[in-house]
Design a protein around this nucleic acid. Structure first.
Lengths: 340, 340
DNA sequence: GCGATTTCTGTGAACGTACACAGAATGACA
DNA sequence: TGTCATTCTGTGTACGTTCACAGAAATCGC
């Protein structure tokens, strides 16, 4: 005859069991779709669940199961990323698609400020995710150290120098792709090919320059390389202006990214050069930029979704305790349009 | 003398307590920075934590505390969003910044496929977040229904028709802003002003058209409105071409977004029109597009970060059980550059 | 010296679930 | 009817934490 206290909180297995006249164990078995639940019990439980509005508490389940079926996706320097890097969205979706298939939840965690770093570190160490995918980490990254200390299964997109050797890395073949597209540009008969080389302090930037140099062989001319700090439109404009001053006779340009290429094309047009008639321009990324320039850009297509998917695959494999290659390199594809 | 089993798992408060020679309670008090921990105990615990490498288990804490200090950020239709909507990144960052200040973790959840919907619904109902921010929900959204059923504190960015009235909504004043910028365009002496009206099936698209019409009053001419399906560059090109065929004498265009405006400008140039001399063009969003067109675009600046921050503020307030206005409308700002 | 405070500590319960185990039905078969 | 396998069910314990409570130790005023 004791009145239950007003149901302020959500229903639990216990409530369902009480309502259905069975035990916690049976409800648990039903919920998890195990064998050995009689038809009568099944019906009673179904009715009870509907009546009390039961939803399982994942947190409690995680606690006892000692795993969460979730992986974190850490985004550093989000501002520059979302603005500059057209691929981050694709990488996210690629990773999500693969994790989704494996019935894992992906949670994107943004690391912007100092506070974020600590909080995300706590989140990761708190046992709320089983593993983690990290994009655009820097060398001295605190998150990287936390992941390392926790020995948490991790996969990096890109290879930050100095990262833990226990993790996996997914990279694209920047060097090979840069070489291929430069060779292709040279094959159109260009004699004086320059490069606007961005972000040389990152592997990606340095490798693209290396590939460019390799493609030209002994025709390589250091004075035709114009370094710029960022993969950005305005960097492309500035770089092209300086390059043009130094080498007015130039007839081909490899821009380190599509955004850079777009800036370069704009500057070339202003300088009265026709693209591709006077100067052939090629970019890198096959981002949204590539189809918006006039003429449309010849460029290198990054398998962005593939990068995300591969990173996800590696984390999942690591979760299963499999042995893995330290670094996975994905090939790029050349997309030839009208700008060269 | 019994050897402890090999420490395969992570250390717990219990291990720390054992090592430090105190009780669980004392360790818990130390970790949570409560009063009443003696200096001796403090030192012993600090040493023990360092020795066994203890990190608190957030999942367990969440379970007993019945709250997580985390809010979900749900992104629908991510593909079109990341590609088309230049603001999603800003909204994310704005929300994250405010949540971060309140020491809450934001977890971005991507809803792409059917599977995602179910999984995210489970994630939300599972007690892993205290509240949720939702962008770009559609009318019949399953996630919306789940949130409603769970009575989970929620804030929407944008106002999907048919959404639960228990939630909060943050919107921008599309109508007012469209009206203002159209009036400003008219004030430059344009007599025949058209509009490329995108996404009329959404509130945002419909409201921008309404504002445009209101600005022109009885000078409004329905034949100068060209509807296009999406807020995209190519939609802008197509729309402008058709509009120009119908009204070759047109001297002003309000494009429903910057991407649309960029397409329109390109088409105008190809048709031999000078911008802004022959035709003045204005856009909407002040996205990255706006500074990349030539001439640079006059447009409406959306307080994107503000939208995210306001949504976060509303969720947090709801978490504290405060009474809230149903809808929060944020003002936009006109940014006048060279395109009109 | 003694009671009253203040500081500190340990213990048991709870959060909501999964899992192991024991045991109860049920049916099959000799 | 007795034995055995199969199907089904309930109970106790564990996951790692916080919190309330009781009680010990120290401090203080007189």
């Amino acid at each position: 005859m004791t009145t239950r206290p007003t149901r302020s909180k959500r229903a639990t297995v216990h409530d369902v069991a009480l309502e259905a006249g069975v035990s916690r164990g049976t409800v648990s078995r039903y919920v998890n779709g195990e064998r050995y639940v009689s038809a009568a019990a099944r019906e009673a439980i179904e009715a009870a669940i509907a009546k009390v509005g039961y939803v399982p508490n994942t947190a409690a389940r995680n606690l006892v199961m000692q795993r969460t079926q979730a992986v974190g996706f850490i985004v550093h320097e989000p501002h520059s990323l979302f603005v500059e890097d057209p691929n981050i969205g694709e990488i996210l979706l690629g990773a999500n698609a693969l994790l989704s298939e494996a019935d894992h939840q992906m949670a994107v965690l943004i690391v912007d400020t100092e506070r974020d770093t600590d909080r995300v570190a706590r989140y990761l160490s708190g046992g709320l995710v089983d593993g983690v995918i990290i994009v655009s980490a820097r060398a001295d990254d605190p998150i990287t150290r936390v992941v390392e200390r926790l020995q948490m299964p991790a996969a990096y997109v890109g290879h930050p120098p100095g990262a833990a050797s226990t993790a996996s890395f997914v990279v694209i073949d920047n060097r090979g792709a840069a070489r291929s597209i430069t060779e292709r540009l040279a094959a159109t008969g260009r004699r004086r090919i320059g490069m606007i080389a961005a972000a040389l302090d990152r592997d990606s930037g340095a490798d693209r320059l290396t590939g460019f140099r390799a493609a030209l062989g002994d025709r390589f001319d250091q004075t035709l390389v114009e370094p710029v700090p960022l993969y950005s439109y305005s960097a492309g404009r500035d770089g092209m202006r300086r390059l043009l001053e130094r080498a007015p006779d130039l007839d081909g340009v490899f821009a380190a990214s599509d955004a850079v290429a777009a800036g370069a094309i704009e500057t070339l047009k202003e300088a009265g050069r026709r693209v591709p008639e006077d100067v052939g321009v090629v970019g890198f990324d096959d981002s949204a930029w590539a189809r918006r320039t006039t003429p449309r850009l010849s460029t290198v297509r990054q398998p962005a979704a593939g990068l995300g998917a591969e990173a996800a695959r590696l984390v999942l494999a690591r979760l299963r305790g499999e042995d893995l290659p330290a670094e996975q390199r994905l090939d790029c594809e050349i997309v030839w349009r009208e700008s060269a």
